[in-house]
Amino acid sequence: MSVLTLPAQPGQDTAPRPLPWRRMAWVTWRQQRATLISVPAVLGAVAVFLVIFGLKVHHDYAAIVKCPLVGSVQNESGACQQLFSRFNATDWPLGNTCAILMALAPVLIGAFAGGPLLARELETGTYRYAWTQGLGRERQVIAKLALVGITLAVVTGAFGELFAWFFQPFLYTEELNVLTDTVFSARGLVFPAFTLVAFAIGAFFGMLLRRIVPAMAATLGVYLAVRLAAWGVRKYYPVAVVTSNSKIFSQFQTPSLPGFPWILTTWVTGPGGKPASPSVANRILNGPGPSPGASVPAGYTEWNRWIPLSHYWPMQFIEAGWLLVIAVALFAATVSLVRRRAA
């Protein structure tokens, strides 16, 4: 029986040329339009708010700074005290709220951008269309991860720096510094890095669990673990210095006064370099009498292992570095799952 067939066109079916990435960019843009618009839009709106409110905060703080004897709160005149109290009562609560939101932002953005990235296709069944098109599923996933990931990184990076400017006055009034956990994680390279990691976790679990809501839930849990790990491991970054002082240097073991470094450990050695006994050390460091800047008793040396504030950027690079490694590993695992998994 005669049948109809298409005359073979040379090279048509064998080894087709790979499609240009530019096309995939349009595809991703159209499929992920909601995410790619809403995240910058929301952040943009908040940014406008931060600019407006931030100008007020800076203005109020400038007034406080002009007051004499700022820094030693007890000695301020009544007017300065009033400015300070009002600042604390009106500006700080909102600043605090913003700081809390900044802590939540990476996981919220990551879960909402990453969770549905692949899970939605699987949940709604549109993968049966998408994964049978000429541009294979791998390239589609890589393009999605890359495009959305880069957008998120850039947008959150800019936003983090805006927040850093906004929050600057509070560093002084609340006795924080840039190495404080909540501050350090909300700016620089680390804020976008955390967002990328959350996004990578979301995308991975989206592919693994194939359902949007479970993927988002898993993202929250895993991200929390990563966040806690970062908090715990930061003090071990190889940027600490060890110095000795003849004047009392340490006060508290946590980052405290602005301009003061993050002191990790303090110890006292006595004559001949031997460690002083605990009671002696305790009396020297914490006992009544000596205050910061006072001299250490003769024969004794105070040692500190600490991270100067000037090491902020190296810290940022290190942390962003290992976060990025985790994110890229998760991306690779996601692509691998896509490649191997049955639909």
Partner: peptide, 28 residues
């Protein structure tokens, strides 16, 4: 090979014109 799965899946929030453009970009 072109495949139309059961229930003819398409992206519900895209218009037909968008689906055309999408398919054009996803194929040789």
């Amino acid at each position: 090979v072109a495949f139309v799965a059961q229930d003819a899946p398409v992206y519900k929030n895209l218009s037909s014109a968008d689906m055309l453009h999408l398919t054009a970009n996803l194929n040789q």
